[in-house]
Design a protein around this nucleic acid. Structure first.
Lengths: 124, 124
DNA sequence: CTGTATCCATTGAGATACTG
DNA sequence: CAGTATCTCAATGGATACAG
């Protein structure tokens, strides 16, 4: 596949479709949390900084629906539910790590560019 | 840097900050369009499938503000404006290509997982 | 040619309270 | 323990018309 054909515009566009899932506020953080291993619901609440139970619930459902994670219910008392990455989820860790690495490495430059932009366009 | 420290929760979290910029609907497609070289406004409108002038304008402004692209105005008649990637923008192409490659490679599996999920949970 | 202004519909996200 | 229901607010995105 040639580089200039990386983005396909067939319906639905894969990159658009994938971005719609992981481009939200929490998905990447949840996936990262699960990269170390299985976690329970409240474990994720504690592990993912500042996420509410409600947003975690929604995020987990979407990720499960798209096959990134697997939900296992143990009918015990009290209830136990475990979340873990599927093969799809695990394979996604690699490009995700690249993205995170880039973000960490370049965040400072972006912040500086933003400041410079504000200075240059203070005459708005 | 250890892998489990890839995501920093310092304020502001770099990955959150970067995702907020490129996680929207058009940024990635615009950056990809510019990866081949300089383009003018209407060139981008033609190049980026289905984007409206208004969304292109907003997207370009954000990308410029964050230092991903550079806008050059030529005061001719008629007006000419050129957009091109900055060094930050160019360096971002690498992790972006990884992401796109993954999306293209795994999109089919995601669609299948989604169908399977619907079948399994038809008793909702 | 290169945009901006305005209005509107949809979605994401947070707070709180409640359930099996 | 593991969620859901409801409400509200803010941000995104799209259509159309207008402007320098």
């Amino acid at each position: 596949m040639k580089d200039d054909q990386l983005i396909s515009f067939e319906q639905p566009c894969p990159i658009r479709d994938v971005l719609d899932r992981i481009g939200d506020k929490w998905s990447l953080l949840v996936l990262h949390s699960l990269s170390e291993g299985t976690l329970r619901f409240n474990g994720l609440v504690r592990n993912v900084e500042d996420i509410s139970k409600q947003m975690l619930s929604k995020t987990l459902k979407r990720l499960e629906k798209d096959g990134f994670i697997r939900r296992t219910l143990y009918a015990e008392v009290p209830l136990r539910v475990e979340y873990e990455l599927t093969d799809i989820g695990k394979s996604f860790l690699k490009p995700m790590a690249e993205l995170i690495r880039w973000a960490n490495a370049n965040h400072r430059d972006i912040v500086l560019a933003r400041q410079q932009y504000r200075l240059t366009n203070s005459n708005r």
